[in-house]
C-alpha cells in the first residue's frame, strides 16, 4: 500500500532522510520510532506529499505521492504531530469543513461527521469551540478529522500525546478496531504503545532505518546480541580467556552491571547464531572448564534497550564518519 523507495531528502546541507526504503502491505499496522530529528516526520511528509523527496520515490496505492498528489491525498487520513486546529471553530463545524475539503457532500458529509464524532467519543463536545477543549479532546478532534472520509491509509503522528491513561487505552482500542481494514503508520515516542498496537516496527535514527521487523523478532535478535549474564568462579586462570576458546562462544566480556569480586567474575557471554540452545552451550562450557556457576540468565531484552542501543550505534557511526572527514576538510 505504501512503498518508499530510496527516498532521500536534504534541506540545504542538512540531510534529514538518507535513502530510506520500506514498504507497508495493505492492512498492516506499522509503528515508526526514533528520537527527535531522526527523519520520521520528514518521511511521513514525503508520503503525504507536502515534502517532495530530493531523490527516490514514494508511492501510495501505486500512485506517485508527488505526480499524483491529489489522488494520493484522497486515500490518506493524516493526523499531524502538533495536531493544528482552528481554535475559533466549533467541533462539528470543523469536521464538516474537513469533510467538504475531501469532497463529501450532503448526506455523505453528515454521515461521515456523525460516525467520526461517535467513534472518537466527541458527542459531548460537538458544539463546543475547539479552542476551549482540553488537550485530550483536541487530540480526538484531530483523530476524527483524519478518519472522516474513511481513507484506506491512516497516518497518525503521536496519536496519544496529551491523553490521560484511560484515554490512551481507549485510543489504543480504537486503533485496534481500525486496524482490520486500514493500513496504518503510527509515529510515536511511547514504546509500549507501538509494541502493543503494531505488527511491525521501523526504528529511525540519523535519517536512516536502523531496524525493521516485528517487536518479537527485533527483541529475539537483540536478546541474541545481548547474550547471557553469567557469574562464575574459576579455580585458576581467567575464565574470560578460557571461555573464549570454546566452540560456539562468540564473545566474552566483563559485565559492569554484574557483581564481581571475591573470586567471582560477572561476564556477558554471546553465543553465535548456529547454536540451537545458547544457555546449554554456556552451561556446558562452564562444566568443561570446571567453573563454579552462581547465576546464568539471558540479558533482559526490552524495546527500550533496543531503541537506546540502535540510537547510540547510529550516533557513533555518524561521529566516526565526521571524524574521518575532518582531516580532509583541514587539508582542503
Amino acid at each position: 500500500m505504501i512503498e518508499v523507495d530510496h527516498a532521500h531528502k536534504s534541506f540545504g546541507k542538512v540531510h534529514a532522510v538518507r535513502g530510506v526504503s520500506f514498504s507497508v502491505p495493505k492492512g498492516s499496522v506499522v509503528g515508526v520510532l526514533g528520537p527527535n530529528g531522526a527523519g520520521k516526520s520528514t518521511t511521513i511528509r514525503m508520503i503525504t506529499g507536502t515534502v517532495p523527496p530530493t531523490r527516490g520515490s514514494v508511492r501510495v496505492d501505486g500512485l506517485d505521492s508527488i505526480d499524483q498528489s491529489l489522488k494520493v491525498r484522497r486515500r490518506l487520513g493524516y493526523l499531524p504531530e502538533s495536531n493544528p486546529l482552528y481554535p475559533e471553530m466549533r467541533v462539528a463545524d470543523f469536521l464538516a469543513f474537513r469533510a467538504r475539503l475531501f469532497g463529501l457532500l450532503g448526506k455523505a458529509r453528515k454521515a461521515g461527521v456523525d460516525r467520526a464524532i461517535s467513534r472518537c467519543w466527541l458527542d459531548d463536545v460537538r458544539s463546543r469551540r475547539v479552542g476551549q477543549l482540553s488537550k485530550g479532546y483536541r487530540q480526538r478532534v484531530g483523530l476524527a478529522a483524519a478518519m472522516l472520509h474513511d481513507p484506506p491509509v491512516l497516518i497518525l503522528d503521536e496519536p496519544t500525546s496529551g491523553l490521560d491513561p484511560a484515554q490512551i487505552a481507549e485510543t489504543r482500542q480504537l486503533i485496534r478496531e481500525l486496524a482490520g481494514d486500514h493500513t496504518m503508520l503510527i509515529v510515536s515516542h511511547i514504546l509500549p504503545e507501538v509494541e502493543k498496537s503494531c505488527d511491525r516496527l521501523l526504528i529511525f535514527a540519523r535519517g536512516r532505518i536502523q531496524a525493521d521487523g516485528s517487536a518479537d523478532d527485533l527483541l529475539r535478535d537483540l536478546a541474541q546480541r545481548q547474550g547471557f549474564a553469567v557469574e562464575v568462579k574459576a579455580a585458576n586462570g581467567d575464565p574470560k580467556t578460557s571461555m573464549q576458546a570454546i566452540a560456539h562462544i562468540e564473545q566474552v566480556e566483563s559485565d559492569p552491571n554484574g557483581r564481581s569480586g571475591d573470586g567471582w567474575h560477572a561476564l556477558r557471554v554471546i553465543v553465535d547464531k548456529a547454536a540451537a540452545d545458547p544457555g546449554a552451550v554456556i552451561g556446558g562450557a562452564c562444566r568443561e572448564l570446571g567453573l563454579t556457576v552462581r547465576s546464568l540468565r539471558p540479558a533482559t531484552a526490552t524495546l527500550e534497550a533496543l531503541y537506546i542501543r540502535l540510537v547510540e550505534q547510529a550516533d557513533k557511526a555518524t561521529a566516526k564518519v565526521s571524524e574521518q572527514r575532518k582531516p580532509e576538510g583541514e587539508a582542503a
Partner: peptide, 14 residues
C-alpha cells in the same frame, strides 16, 4: 504560524 497549513495542504485540493 499555527501549522494549520499542513492539514490544508494534505487535503485533496490544489
Amino acid at each position: 504560524r499555527s501549522g494549520t497549513i499542513e492539514p490544508l495542504m494534505t487535503a485533496p485540493i490544489s
